[in-house]
């Protein structure tokens, strides 16, 4: 009898998990889409669609960690733009493309470090500081490049954003994403660093009083956020083949939307990496499906907004009705 109850509870708790709900929505959406157009279920086009959202996906991984600590980084898209501009300007002035890439990534990493440094040193809220650097970094991009665009990158560089692995048809960025997604999942769920990230999100004071290096961890996360953003910026630049100061405009909100939709609590402490990864693919396939059906990209904005509200609603309904555990911490 007890076993039955236990089994029943486990069954219910799997279904009350947000990740499960999200995955079901993902499956249902794909089934529906496959009826709308015969081109949908095509292995190659499904693989190719991942090109267009891997950059956001990469940044969503680090954003997940930052939001779980109860912080936020609004400057990621501006950081992407700045590091891409630094890379492009270096390249234009005759520096080797890979050295330019390195310079661009250094710039982006420094942006992240600066965010973290101000936030931890002055104990200021990350929301305000990254809102300030959100316009600050973007502004510097405009100052450097004006209204010009830089293009004409070498083919070896554009491979980053457009290439396939060897002779297969697997996109290179997808592989990079999968590797990083696994690394981030392991860090968050299997290491002491991950546990500390959750703990900080719940209660920074208790963590500090328990000897957790709260400031150091925050500094590392924000620096890493700059690094990953500039890394993603290289993929984005390589994919579209040119750089403008307005590169990645609006990405920060899309990325935060993906993370929240993935079940991460904006106040911190709650959320899982698998949830966010499913959310990345869900948003990606919606965009792809709508594109195949000739629905303009702007509609995507409406859909992702609606989805976000809906997700929170469903989450609440599930929680209230079943009175089961909320999301796993």
């Amino acid at each position: 009898m007890m076993d039955m109850v236990k089994k029943n509870n486990r069954f219910k708790s799997v279904f009350s998990r947000w990740e499960t709900m999200l995955f079901l929505i993902f499956i249902i959406f794909n089934i529906l889409m496959s009826f709308t157009t015969p081109y949908y279920l095509n292995a190659q086009s499904i693989l190719d669609m991942t090109f267009i959202f891997m950059e956001k996906g990469l940044v969503a991984l680090i954003m997940t960690l930052i939001i779980i600590t109860g912080n936020i980084d609004l400057s990621v898209a501006s950081t992407m733009s700045l590091s891409s501009v630094v890379m492009a300007v270096s390249f234009q002035s005759g520096i080797n493309i890979w050295v330019s890439v390195l310079l661009g990534m250094l710039a982006g990493t420094f942006c992240g470090f600066l965010n973290g440094f101000i936030i931890t040193r002055l104990s200021l809220p990350s929301m305000i500081i990254t809102l300030a650097t959100f316009s600050f970094y973007r502004g510097i991009s405009y100052v450097i490049l004006g209204d010009k665009a830089v293009s004409g990158f070498t083919e070896k560089f554009t491979y980053l954003g457009q290439g396939y692995i060897g002779s297969t048809k697997i996109p290179f960025p997808l592989v990079v994403f999968i590797v990083l997604a696994i690394v981030f999942s392991l860090v968050l769920h299997k290491t002491f660093m991950g546990r500390m990230i959750y703990a900080i999100g719940w209660n920074e004071n208790s963590c500090f009083a328990s000897g957790i290096p709260v400031k150091k961890i925050k500094l590392i996360l924000f620096t890493l956020s700059g690094f990953i953003s500039s890394f993603a910026a290289m993929f984005l630049t390589a994919r579209i083949g040119n750089t403008r100061p307005n590169l990645a405009t609006g990405f920060e909100l899309e990325i935060i939307t993906i993370v929240i939709l993935g079940g991460v609590m904006i106040s911190g402490g709650i959320g899982t990496m698998p949830g966010v990864i499913i959310s990345i693919f869900l948003i990606g396939t919606i965009r792809y499906g709508l594109g195949l059906n000739n629905i303009p990209g702007q509609i995507m904005l409406i859909i992702s907004g609606a989805l976000l509200i809906l997700s929170i609603l469903i989450n609440n309904i599930v929680k209230n009705f079943s009175k089961l555990k909320p999301l796993r911490q």
Partner: peptide
């Protein structure tokens, strides 16, 4: 930490030491 369970609370100050390398 109210939102976390007994295990996470009790192991918090020695989390690093009780972990194997970096793994919990």
């Amino acid at each position: 930490i109210l939102g976390m369970n007994l295990v996470s609370n009790i192991s918090l100050p020695i989390l690093r030491k009780i972990s194997k390398f970096t793994w919990l």
